[in-house]
């Protein structure tokens, strides 16, 4: 287990996450892609902390900030999905065309 191996795994997670976020039509599935990207970021942060900082606590602090970002992303994301559904009865990205022109 080396830092390079950990970072490659996190790169794979980020790659899959980008694929999901770009390809999915449903809002909720799109958010799954975002979550997967943050998953990779979290792993990379902890990998760098574990192999590169000699245990300085600030690295773990960054991981906690990433977790807070995840929580914010989920909560606001779902709130937006609910708001859009109320207003437009839309649950897919294609249904939102107001900003297209």
């Amino acid at each position: 287990m080396t830092l390079a191996a950990v970072l490659i795994v996190s790169a794979a997670l980020i790659g899959i996450g980008i694929y999901g976020a770009l390809s999915q039509q449903s809002f909720v599935m799109l958010m799954m892609g975002l979550e997967l990207m943050l998953n990779g970021v979290l792993l990379a942060v902890i990998g760098f902390w574990s192999f590169g900082l000699g245990g300085a606590p600030e690295g773990q602090l960054l991981a906690i900030v990433v977790m807070a970002v995840m929580a914010v992303e989920m909560a606001i994301g779902f709130a937006l999905v609910v708001a859009v559904y109320r207003k437009r009865q839309a649950d897919m990205t294609e249904s939102l065309t107001t900003l297209r022109r």
């Binding site: 790169a11 794979a12 980020i14 790659g15 899959i16 996450g17 980008i18 694929y19 999901g20 976020a21 770009l22 390809s23 039509q25 990205t93 294609e94």
Partner: peptide, 14 residues
């Protein structure tokens, strides 16, 4: 949607 683009972007990122 845009499945090929998404897959390519994901793979290129990785």
């Amino acid at each position: 949607h845009q499945h090929r683009l998404a897959a390519a972007t994901g793979f290129i990122t990785f």
